[in-house]
Amino acid sequence: MSQASQRTSDGPQIMAILNLTPDSFSDGGQYRDPEQAVRHALTMLAEGADILDLGGESTRPGSKSVTPQEQERRVLPVIRRLREQIPESVPMSIDTTSARVARAALDAGATWINDTSAGLDDPQMLALAAERGVPIVLMHRQGIPETMQQAPSYKDVVAEVCHHLAARAQAALAAGVEADRILLDPGIGFGKLAAHNLALLAALDRIVALGFQVLLGTSRKGFMRAICGGVEPTQLMPATCATTTLGVMSGVRVFRVHDVAGNRQAADIAWAVRNAG
């Protein structure tokens, strides 16, 4: 099913986005039916995804929070159906800032946590990751999704993001999460202007140098639309592939994307070039 077995375990990993929401910025409402969502997930695995990332709450700019109960209603049936059809070795990630939702998802068959608040929205999240021994993605975010793009401000965005991520990694370690199960995400587009996003992409090696695995999520994001002439988000696969290539060459390990096939190719070619060098 997945092409992961054909690649080395230390190579770049593709995390495929499965938004089970009505209002995500580029694919909201497309996969609200559980059977349709499962079919799309299986397609992404066949295209070369290594990890599936399922979320029941949009975190696009301007979005409002969704109750844990509603998140669970959206994601748990899909996680259960998928776990019946895919090998245990294929990771499934739950994209949530709620420890309650994360726990229910892990019970249903998820094996990763992806927390855009880096454990700050729910103080139980880091302890849950430690208790279950699962990888957790800790992302930088300035503000909350509803208001984060109104007036983002930094004196030195790279230094501030690195400082925040290092602090959250230390908090996870203190909670008992193993170092090799911590992934850091600079949070492209989360409380950042285009210039901030570009500065972070130019300095990915500084985030990698913090000593933890790094995840990059640029897929179809608005800062690239402006550079690419205002095209629709669904037309930004080539732009996303460019950032995937940059990330591989900088040492990023995981890439969270909508368009799996193109980014799989970009990651694999960049990895081959990096090794040849």
Rank of each mutant, 00 (worst) to 15 (best):
V157I: 15
S93T: 07
I86N: 06
I136C: 10
L126H: 01
A99V: 00
T111F: 10
R73T: 14
A99R: 00
Q149R: 11
T116E: 01
E88D: 05
P91S: 00
M139S: 02
L76C: 08
N114Q: 06
R73H: 10
V134H: 02
L126Y: 00
L76T: 03
R74N: 14
Q170Y: 15
I94F: 01
P77E: 09
V158L: 12
A159P: 00
A169H: 09
A130C: 12
P145T: 01
C162Y: 13
V78N: 10
S93H: 06
R168V: 14
L106D: 02
L128G: 03
L120N: 10
T111W: 09
T111Y: 04
A130Q: 10
S117F: 00
A130L: 08
M125S: 11
I136H: 02
Y154G: 03
A129K: 07
D156K: 08
Q85W: 07
V134F: 06
D95G: 07
L138E: 09
V157Y: 08
P135Y: 06
V78C: 13
P87N: 08
T116A: 00
P123Q: 12
G133F: 05
Q149P: 04
V75I: 12
R80P: 02
V157N: 09
L106Y: 06
V75S: 13
D121W: 08
S93W: 01
Q142Y: 01
E72H: 10
H140N: 11
A102S: 07
T97D: 01
A129T: 14
A99N: 01
G143R: 02
V137L: 09
L106I: 05
R141V: 14
V161A: 02
I86Q: 12
M139A: 03
S153N: 10
V161R: 00
H140Q: 11
R74V: 12
Q149F: 15
D121P: 03
M148A: 05
G133C: 13
P145S: 06
A99S: 14
I136Y: 05
A127I: 01
I94M: 14
R132E: 08
E146C: 04
E160R: 12
M148L: 11
E88Q: 03
R168H: 15
L128P: 05
T111G: 07
W112D: 04
M125D: 08
S98V: 09
N114V: 11
I144F: 08
G143M: 11
E131W: 04
D95V: 12
G133E: 14
M92K: 02
R80A: 15
I113W: 02
M125I: 05
V75Q: 03
Q124S: 09
G109N: 13
S117P: 06
D95E: 06
S89K: 15
G119V: 11
R74P: 11
P123G: 01
H164C: 08
A169Q: 13
P87S: 12
I94D: 07
I144E: 05
Q124V: 05
R103T: 01
L138W: 07
D115Q: 03
R80S: 10
R83T: 14
K155E: 13
R73S: 07
Q142S: 04
A129F: 09
N114Y: 09
V75W: 03
I113T: 13
L126V: 03
L76F: 01
T147Y: 01
R103C: 04
G109Q: 12
P135C: 11
A169R: 10
P87I: 15
R132T: 07
